[in-house]
Design a protein around this nucleic acid. Sequence first.
DNA 1: CACCATGTTCCTTG
DNA 2: CCAAGGAACATGGT
Length: 289
Amino acid sequence: MPELPEVEVLVRHLRPLLQNKTIRNVQVNRARVLTPTSPGQLRKALGGATFSGLSRRGKYLLFKLRNQANLETRLLIGHLGMTGRMYLAPSRHLLPKHAAVVLNLGAQNFIFEDTRYFGRFTLDQTAVTKLGPEPLSTDFSLQLFQRALKRSQQPIKAKLLDQSLVAGIGNIYASEALFRAGIWPRTKANRLRPEQVRRLWRAIREVLASAIKFGSTVPLSYARSGRGDGLFYFGKSDDAPGFYEERLQVYDRARLPCMVCGHKVRRIRQAGRSTFYCPKCQSRQKSGV
DNA sequence: CACCATGTTCCTTG
DNA sequence: CCAAGGAACATGGT
């Protein structure tokens, strides 16, 4: 469920709630999400530790923990996969069906729930070290982006999902950024003209920043599905018709009119995943192919 | 039964 | 060795 903006909003939400809370108990219901850490290793590292910081890198959550006894600092890595959620709930509440890991903090539990168990809750940092620059920081320079794209013959849509190119873009914002930049998704990365690369570079940051801004306005309750659960990127919701209108321009809008020109939005398949685009606003011709 | 799903990693192929 | 594509992971919705 998460791409960079959703994770950023979640991190901002959780940071003050976890700060200085001490872990009394560690319950692992699905060892797979810890891989390659073992349940024993996790219990040993987290038991009795205190949350001292929370940040984000790409789609990963970085929990800083202080060990009370020896003042050592540990890093816990979280990733929501496709369907993960993290939230606090009263300890007396029943645990959800797919609670993968539960950290008891006293009166509250910190719950990592994940129906498909694609997420991660681990001490292993290797995935994070392989990430490319943060798109919203100055590390993500136009020059770096240009040089990386020059070396790839992949369709630009697929390339945007490469987390070593730039961290945090997923299937939704890849389509959105290309729409905003007016680029045909099948254009080979190394065939993009310089001005297209620059437009895409800008569009990536605009699309992500505006999603964070939007997400920050949504009243959150991560424990329940629906409007307030932080899954604000989906343009549908029963309990709030119109709430998400005009947030996403093309994603999940196959056969619906383009919000800019009215042409039918098209869905295609690239590297096994759906891409949405407007054939008129993002024509092959315009993309110079 | 069919196909779809916000992600990453591993395996195969070229 | 590298790059690119597809399958696998696991569960649920339509």
